[in-house]
Design a protein around this nucleic acid. Structure first.
Lengths: 231, 231
DNA sequence: CGTGGTTTTGAGCCCGTTCAAGTATCGTGG
DNA sequence: CCACGATACTTGAACGGGCTCAAAACCACG
């Protein structure tokens, strides 16, 4: 499912947030020529860990999880990317993590080699990508601290503070849905499904959150949750 | 302690490994003009988490740990930087982690603002920095998986495989010393000192490692250690 | 030699896991 | 619209890996 027109970049909702925003409008066509809009549905794999890295993706809408797993089934989400962010980190030749759609996702796919040419032509793009990489690195450091030193309660609270409401731009604030299963949350926090479930029901008993239909979580006491999350 | 001469860049041992290597030799002076060589001894703090980010550091020799800590004392090392690598990641204005010398360290300190000018002049520098950021991001993903999903034995084995021998360029191979205390290793692996010690002595009993004078660890059975480390 | 910091070792405990059973929710087709 | 099965979530009981607390051993330094 491809939205063909090149000209769409001009009206792109996330342009200013993303590296594309570094380009002046008149140069936008050279960018549009090198990318392709692609849509993925929830649970579809976008790239696989270890595959040859040919593309870089920019998220127009939706959310993507990056994860690694071991043959014995242990899985760990190593990053979550929101609209305007890019993904498909390659350590040289190969992707270092698998990317999968958490929601319906529309991404711009760029060929790495053509993007490299484009970056030589427009160094501002590179500057923005570098800046965004720093932000991703800082986010990774957050997660490293969380995984190494936080308790289950702190982990879940941190997760809720960080991500609830980030997935659905329409209804912010109160009805902050997170379209992740308990297993996915567990794989993000280095816990088991059961522990995530237990912590959430205990938060519900303490009136910190409410668990609505289809087990979705709504935040009730954000201040206390923030306190529990620590740092 | 400052090594004044600008011209030193030409003979710098890590130039080709670092972002400086992107510059042609004739342009090296403009780089040398913007940086300052500084030396730190083991345990000296180089930058503090939360401080305003004015510099970026490039490691000429020695090893640096990046860590975060909470007021209650919990500490987590979020990265280790080797010669040729840079550090001092800032999420916008502030450093996101504290940097401390693990060994005697010589660093090139660049002003962020002057480096930005320099990058506009020489976009190749930016390209190298971006590439290195990707590598750091991949390393962070390694650590995230390790912290979230590996057992204590796997963590220690992974640590030994990854870092022993990386600290002392002179004597590689057999006598791979790691100039970190048990507490520091624990803070890197999300464990306690006691657990690190127990795992190491159990490795010693199994003839996987030898524990020499001053508790330094020497690898004996690298193949098996790699297997234990997993992935 | 003492002294002080680091490391090792031991004993007991607890948080989060494992295993297992039961419940809720959703999609599908009759 | 409901019955059905599949999947996700919850709850309980028991276990155990790694933690806590405490003491002893080691080592560097004066």
């Amino acid at each position: 499912m491809e939205h063909a027109p090149y000209t769409v970049c001009k009206t792109c909702t996330i342009r200013t947030k993303s590296f594309c925003g570094a380009l002046p409008v008149r140069s936008l066509d050279s960018l549009a020529n090198t990318r392709r809009l692609v849509r993925f549905e929830r649970r579809q794999t976008i790239v696989c860990e270890g595959a040859t890295a040919v593309s870089l993706f920019n998220i127009v809408s939706g959310v993507v999880k990056l994860y690694r797993s071991l043959p014995d089934g242990r899985t760990q989400i190593v990053g979550i990317r929101l609209p305007g962010e890019f993904f498909a980190i390659a350590d040289g030749e190969k992707y270092t993590a698998t990317a999968e759609a958490l929601t319906s996702v529309v991404v711009c796919r760029f060929s790495r080699s053509r993007l490299k040419q484009l970056m030589q032509q427009f160094p501002q793009i590179q500057a923005r990508l570098l800046e965004m990489s720093y932000r991703h690195l800082a986010a990774a450091q957050d997660q490293i601290f969380l995984l190494g030193r936080k308790t289950a309660r702190e982990k879940v609270a941190s997760f809720l503070m960080r991500y609830s409401g980030k997935f659905d731009p329409e209804r912010m604030d109160k009805y902050r849905r997170v379209p992740m299963t308990r297993t996915e949350i567990a794989d993000f926090l280095g816990l088991t499904t059961e522990t995530v479930s237990r912590v959430l029901t205990s938060f519900a008993r303490e009136k910190l959150v409410a668990i609505d239909l289809s087990h979705s979580v709504r935040l009730l006491n954000i201040d206390l949750l923030r306190k529990i999350a620590g740092n």
